[in-house]
């Protein structure tokens, strides 16, 4: 396998190491392997972009890390180690989702930003009530202190006049402000890691730009490790330091962002990048396409999952064997084409 070291300079510590994560959804119609051996590293203070189309498992990954997988989904294997090789090391896969430890991780050590901020907010309470509660969940402070902290959080996320907005109900806010509140909620427990699941997909383009620049600013100011899940290659190019490309529940390529865009290694990444409409296009410029559609994760093709749509198949091997996964901590592609002949 063609590999290069992940970072160009001394690699920062790993904040979260996911290894061979496997998640299944079991129903009467059969077993859907939503994740099938997913591994990646999230480095401290960096942004890891996870990109893929529908059914690739990017959201399931986020929910698995926070142990928020609902019935009938179950984690069937793998480890998710927070702060590996430090005294704070903890394997999230081994915890009971309802345990106190896991609840401390959720919102405490790891914050979550949703696509639709109303998922995280209740319509019955003011923004302040919910923020204060979130702050007090993770810090033993008085209500007055928590309120100050909440106002500060609102100011941090760029909400104008936080002293008055703190008493607003979520439905009184615009979509952009609501997502800012969603970010404030994710930051309430002072997390080291923030997982953002399609945080701008529901927003307009100018609002998206504001939220992305806010996220970048907060990351730098608070030295947060950001895991950004998106389907938008533009957002990846703008935000990510490293990128994990997923397809049908597997990681197909891992690379630093510039390398990924300059020299994609996996045929899927290559095809995907060529298929993205560009704001720099010539008039009436055609796109190169990937044939077919993403199969349902329940009917994953044999061998390399991408082979039926792949324009660069090597031969029968693509249909018979699953290519080796990208070794953790390294850049590379899970593809027979890039494997060095023995």
């Amino acid at each position: 396998m063609l590999q290069t070291p992940m970072a160009d300079h001394a690699a920062p510590a790993v904040a979260l190491a996911v290894r061979d994560l496997a998640v299944q959804f079991r129903s009467e119609q059969g077993v859907v392997r939503a994740l099938d051996g997913v591994s990646f590293d999230l480095h401290a203070g960096r942004t890891l972009g996870i990109v893929g189309e529908s059914g690739c498992g990017k959201s399931v990954t986020a929910r698995s890390i926070l142990r928020l997988i609902d019935h009938p989904g179950i984690i069937t294997g793998g480890r998710m180690v927070l702060d590996p090789s430090t005294p704070r090391e903890i394997d999230l896969a081994s915890l009971d989702p309802e345990s106190r430890q896991m609840r401390e991780v959720r919102g405490g050590r790891i914050g979550l930003i949703f696509q639709e901020p109303m998922t995280a907010l209740s319509v019955h309470y003011t923004v302040g009530n919910q923020l204060i509660e979130a702050v007090r969940q993770h810090h033993s402070v008085s209500v007055a202190e928590a309120r100050n902290r909440a106002t500060e959080l609102l100011r941090d996320v760029g909400i104008p006049r936080p002293e008055t907005r703190i008493d607003a109900y979520p439905f009184e806010l615009s979509g952009g402000l609501r997502q800012r509140v969603g970010i404030a909620m994710a930051l309430a427990g002072d997390p080291d890691i923030v997982i953002a699941d399609e945080p701008t997909t529901a927003l307009d383009v100018t609002t998206q730009a504001q939220i992305l620049s806010l996220l970048r600013g907060l990351q730098e100011a608070k030295n947060i490790s950001l895991m950004l899940i998106t389907h938008d290659m533009g957002v990846i190019a703008e935000m990510a330091d490293e990128v994990t490309v997923m397809y049908l529940g597997r990681v197909v390529e891992v690379a630093p962002v510039r390398q990924l865009f300059a020299a994609p290694r996996h045929p899927y990444t290559r095809a995907l990048l060529r298929a993205v409409p560009s704001i720099l296009a010539r008039p009436r410029q055609r796109l190169s396409t990937i044939g077919g559609a993403v199969p349902h994760p329940g009917s994953r093709p044999f061998g390399c999952s991408f082979h039926p749509r792949c324009a660069e198949r090597v031969g029968a091997v693509c249909m018979e064997r699953i290519p080796d996964p990208v070794p953790p901590g390294q850049a590379g592609a899970s593809c027979f084409r890039t494997e060095v002949p023995a």
């Binding site: 615009s174 402000l177 100018t206 504001q210 533009g234 190019a237 703008e238 510039r258 993205v276 704001i279």
Partner: peptide
């Protein structure tokens, strides 16, 4: 136009973001 994230990591960080809301 400035708000659209372009799929090119070399073209970033030099754009002005419109403030405020629609």
């Amino acid at each position: 136009l400035a708000a659209v994230p372009a799929p090119d990591p070399n073209r970033q960080h030099r754009r002005r973001v419109a403030q405020g809301e629609v």
